[in-house]
Structures are given as structure tokens and as C-alpha cells.
């Protein structure tokens, strides 16, 4: 096995009865990568996390994390990974330091290394002033950072983050991602799942997942250009009526509604003239129309529709 591969999945499948949660997944994630698993709730993100963290066994297929098989060497994997979930998995009735010490003990972090590690973790998470505060009394963003600090106490090789910023305010989210970028400099592999498509753009590589299958997987830039067709954004007054009107235009592959605007995928750029004409005929006023690079959301929707 190549040493530079941090996570490798081979036909990884997990089903619960008739329900296939993870469907024949093949994926390799290199050491030091920030990989984002992007998809809606129920797509199978958490199940993949559980399989890779050796909490749950696969129905079939194999996977290796940090060079260890998830099926046979779960205990070894647990020593080398950090994990943080959307639910704040720390003790609210313990202080910040007590939480950190508790996880340091569970991971058997040597006493000699603790002071400097803890100081560093508290430093980057800006938790130093709150050392003795009860975890339950921290704000959502700070809780999340404390969770991350605890997940990093044993300097894991691979960090799994299951929707880590769910329900966290935008400023804290930005802080959180800044910390993740700092970690990347230290060659930590980060495997993050998210339902936020704007967060997906921050990843080095993403995989769009739907119903247990990876639809497309590459860097966010390449994923966004994977459509192969031009896309226009049209701002209109009556977007619902406009949606119906544009749908009927010849050469329009798909249309999606985003509030007051439509995103339409066209066979070729000149189709946009037909769109303008049709909207004019229907008496719908266009505020603006321009060609855009599709967002990850567009790609996701077009991929889901394409199936």
C-alpha cells in the first residue's frame, strides 16, 4: 500500500436491511489532503464516517485508514484518528481543561508532552482565557473549537469531522476553517462532511454524495466546470412563472430556481437569446441576465437530475 494514501476505500458498502446507505464506494485520499464529503442529510455521510472510524463494520468491501484495515485493526485506527461530530461530544459539566485532560488520558498522551500540546491547542482555538469555564457555558463556536482541541490532543494523522460547523455562526465557522488550514500545514489529513455547499468550496477536493453514491469527485474548481454546458443566471420579477416559461424553451437542459433568480443550463451560449424572447413573450420582466460559472449546488442538482 502506498504510504502517501491516508484513506482508501475499496468497494465499501454498508446496508441496513434493504436500505443501502453506502453503495460500493471507491475513493483514495492522500495524506495531507482536505477532502470534503458533500451531500444532503441522509446521503450516507455519517455512515461513511462511522465505517472509516471503525465504529461500525462494513457489509462488504474494504477500507484502510492510516494504513490499517477498518475491519481487522480498528483499535490501531482509533489511536491514529481524531473525530468530531456535529453534536458537541464533550462533557458540559466539566471545565475546558478537564475535558482536554480527560481525552488526553483516554489517548494516553505522555505527561511530558501535555503542557506544550495543551498550550498550543488552547492558543490556536483562543480558549486560553476560558480554561476553567464549564464547557456548557461556552458559546456554540467555542464549544466546537474545544471539541476540535480534544480531537487533536493526541496529534492524529487523520481527522474526521462530521458536519462540524452545523449550527455554528458564520464568524465562528470562518475561524474554524482557518484552524483547519493551519492543520493542513502539519500534514494532517482532514476528512470532513458537510451539507453546506459554500463550505465545500473551501476543501481541496470534494466528493458529491447522494443516496450512498459518489456522484462526482474532484477539486471544487474542476467539479464546478464539470457541467460541460454554459449556465446563465437570470434575475426576474416573477420567478415562478419564469421557471415554467424557461423550462419550455428549446435548448434549455435544466432550470433551477433560487429565490428571485433562475439558473439555466443551455445547450449552447446563443440559446440565451431564446430565453430572453420567451420571457418577453410571457410578459416577465428581466432585471439582469449573465453567464455564470455553476456553483457546486448547481452541479449537485444537475447530477441528481441526470440520474
Amino acid at each position: 500500500m502506498n504510504k502517501a494514501i491516508a484513506i482508501r476505500m475499496l468497494n465499501l458498502t454498508k446496508s441496513f436491511g434493504d436500505n443501502i446507505a453506502v453503495d460500493n464506494l471507491n475513493l483514495e485520499i492522500e495524506k495531507g489532503e482536505l477532502f470534503g464529503l458533500v451531500g444532503p442529510d441522509g446521503a450516507g455521510k455519517t455512515t461513511i464516517m462511522r465505517l472509516l472510524t471503525a465504529v461500525m463494520g462494513p457489509t462488504s468491501g474494504k477500507a484502510w485508514v492510516a494504513g490499517h484495515s477498518i475491519a481487522q485493526e480498528g483499535e490501531r485506527i482509533k489511536e491514529k484518528i481524531g473525530y468530531m461530530s456535529q453534536r458537541f461530544g464533550l462533557y458540559e459539566d466539566l471545565t475546558v481543561m478537564e475535558n482536554i485532560f480527560f481525552y488526553a488520558d483516554l489517548y494516553e498522551v505522555p505527561q511530558s508532552e501535555r503542557p506544550q500540546r495543551i498550550e498550543r491547542l488552547l492558543g490556536f482555538s483562543n480558549l486560553t482565557p476560558f480554561k476553567d469555564r464549564l464547557a456548557g457555558k461556552l458559546s456554540g463556536g467555542m464549544k466546537q473549537k474545544l471539541g476540535l482541541a480534544c480531537a487533536l490532543i493526541h496529534t492524529p494523522e487523520v481527522l474526521f469531522l462530521d458536519e462540524p460547523t452545523n449550527g455554528v455562526d458564520p464568524v465562528s465557522r470562518r475561524d474554524f476553517w482557518r484552524i483547519l488550514y493551519d492543520l493542513l500545514k502539519e500534514e494532517v489529513t482532514i476528512f470532513v462532511s458537510t451539507a453546506y455547499l459554500d463550505e465545500a468550496e473551501r476543501c481541496g477536493r470534494i466528493g458529491l454524495i447522494h443516496k450512498g453514491r459518489i456522484l462526482i469527485e474532484d477539486s471544487p474548481a474542476i467539479v464546478k466546470n464539470s457541467l460541460g454546458y454554459p449556465m446563465i443566471e437570470v434575475w426576474v420579477e416573477d420567478s415562478r412563472a419564469a421557471l415554467e416559461a424557461v423550462r419550455g424553451v428549446d435548448g434549455v437542459r435544466s432550470v433551477n430556481l433560487y429565490g428571485d433568480r433562475l439558473h439555466a443550463t443551455l445547450e449552447s451560449p446563443d440559446i440565451s437569446r431564446r430565453v430572453v424572447e420567451r420571457l418577453g413573450d410571457s410578459g416577465i420582466k428581466i432585471s439582469s441576465l449573465r453567464e455564470i460559472t455553476p456553483s457546486i449546488e448547481d452541479i449537485f442538482l444537475s447530477q441528481v437530475e441526470g440520474r
Binding site: 472510524t53 471503525a54 465504529v55 483499535e75 482509533k78 489511536e79 484518528i81 473525530y83 468530531m84 461530530s85 453534536r87 458537541f88 461530544g89 464533550l90 462533557y91 481525552y103 483516554l106 489517548y107 494516553e108 480534544c150 474526521f160
Partner: peptide, 10 residues
């Protein structure tokens, strides 16, 4: 939710 966290520790 701490059980979930404990399960991924050694």
C-alpha cells in the same frame, strides 16, 4: 453525544 465520541477513542 459523548458516547459517540468515546467510541472513536481507544
Amino acid at each position: 453525544g459523548t458516547m459517540e465520541q468515546l467510541m472513536v477513542t481507544p
